[in-house]
Structures are given as C-alpha cells and as structure tokens.
Nucleic acid binder design. Structure first.
Lengths: 147, 147
DNA sequence: TATTGTTATACTCTATAACTATA
DNA sequence: TATAGTTATAGAGTATAACAATA
C-alpha cells in the first residue's frame, strides 16, 4: 500500500500525486507535441488515429472504427470527411450491407500514414525518453492493464 | 512477443499500443468513475482538484491555482464561483495586493474535501487494483517523470 | 505600463435527436 | 422494426481579447 506524500498542510495530497491529474496532463502534453510535429503533413493526431486502424485493417466500417477508438459514430463523420478530402481514404458502400461504408486507404493514404506514424513514434520516444526503453514498455503495459 | 490479430496488417501498430490512446482513455475512464462517485457529494473531479490545492495551501490566489493546475485563469472563475456558491471556499481581497483574491477553505469546505478525497482515493485504488500497490506507485512515478 | 480577476466570445470535442437509405 | 451513416444542435472545456481595479 503506497502512502501518499504529505509535503503540505494536514496530510493533503499534492496535486501531482493524483493519478487523474497525471493522466490528463501527460495526455495533453503528448497530444500537443504530436499535433505540432504532424502539422507539416497536414494531419492531426485524431486523424492519424483513424488512418491507423484503416491502414492496419483493424476496422472496416465507420461504426467499427468509432467503436474501436471509443468515440461516437457522429464524431467519426468529420474525421473521415477530412481524410477523404485529402485523398487518404475512400468510402464505398459494402457489397454485403449497402448501409455500411467500407473504408479503404488509398496508396497516397498508406504513404502518408507511414510518414506520419514515423513522426508520431519519434515524438512518443522523445516524450518517454526519461523512462528508458524498458520503462516506456512498462508504462504501456500498465496503462493497457487499466483498460 | 505480442500475438498479432488476424486482421492486423504487418508493420502497423494496434491502436492500443499507442501511448496517446492509452493515456487519453485511461484518463477518461478514471474521470468518469470519479465524477460518478463524487456526484452524491455535489462535487465534480474538477472542483475537487481546485479544492485540494486550496485546502492543502498549495495555492493562495486564483492565478496561482490556475497556473499550478495548468488551466487558464479565465476557466478558474466558474470553478471558484461554484465552490463559493456551495460555501466551501471564500474569496477575499489580499491585504498586500488588493487585485488578488485570496482563496480560503471554510470549515464546511474542509469537511467536504475530506469526504470527497476519501471517495477519490477509493476510486483510484479500485482503478489501479490490477497493478497492485507497488505497480500503482510505479505508474505514478513514471507519469510524474514525463511532466 | 503591467497584472488580477472578470466578462464576452469563439472554437473544439462530445452527445442527443432526428432524418435517409437500407436491412 | 432496427441499423449505418448523416445532419443539426446543444453542452462542456478551453482559449483570446478586452475591460475595471489596482499595482
């Protein structure tokens, strides 16, 4: 059982001992750095996340993509719109169920993904550099265990 | 060695190997659970965070509180309004610098904080239960090293 | 001139409801 | 009757600009 540090008054936790604070600000800082690094490619981290599951084949329809990434299907529309507008992804009606949009990455989209994912990985490595390679892997494993 | 999903194409990371995804969703889930558990006390996790630094004496003015928690000073106004409205916190002009609002927790505010912090700690322990006590401490240390 | 708190405003992200076309 | 995608809309959270009081 970990005992919280009590540097301040009356045994009150410091704000940076609170897991919620740490998760929120670690996320915000990593997202800020990633979006900054991706900007020259004309892509946001949000769009890269969707492109990743399409290129990787982890999701085929918009609904599957939304469910997998834990976002609302209505939020997915604008992201797929943007990816389609930049020629990275194509929508076509499914042969089996014409209500569904099958999402396919174009050749340009796959090339864009590779460049963007390299950028994203470099930012991640830099962000977790203080932990070392093994520490970064442990962090990933711990976070995955929470979800 | 991770076992690849059959529908995952080679060379593409799974979405749940991406640190940004893991941080975001761990944060969202913990916040959801915390807000749910705090609701009977009439407090949000956001308000508890501000009340914590006031009760703990880590910040004295609104500006200090905002800077410490990494939020905009304009966003702080509504949170302090809410805490003041529920009688947990009082604003008074500083003696040294009358532009500044000194924020002080009331007796009711300190009592509310203790109950809310107990709830928050219980939710955190439950959320990180899969890691064990030592694993939770390691997670906290790793996240603090990132910031 | 600069700073604290405040208000007004805008922009993003998210959530709900309703529509369409298909099943 | 139910589902996938879409649109419109409203709600949070956050950021910028401008103002009043004070330094």
């Amino acid at each position: 059982m970990a005992i919280p540090r009590t540097d301040q008054r009356d045994g009150v936790r410091r704000h940076d001992e609170v897991v919620g604070y740490l998760l929120k600000h670690a996320h915000l800082e990593l997202e800020r750095r990633t979006d900054e690094a991706l900007a020259p490619l004309g892509l946001t981290s949000r769009e890269l996340g969707v492109l990743r599951v399409i290129v990787g084949g982890a999701a085929r329809s918009q609904q599957e993509t939304a469910t997998l990434l834990g976002v609302d299907r209505t939020s997915m529309v604008a992201v797929v719109d943007a990816l389609e507008r930049m020629g990275a992804v194509a929508r076509r009606p499914s042969d089996e169920d014409r209500r569904r949009n099958v999402l396919e990455a174009t050749a340009d989209g796959r090339a864009l993904f590779r460049r963007a994912e390299d950028v994203s990985l470099a930012v991640e490595r830099d962000f977790t550099a203080a932990l070392g390679g093994a520490g970064a892997a442990e962090l990933r494993a711990a976070l995955r265990a929470l979800l």
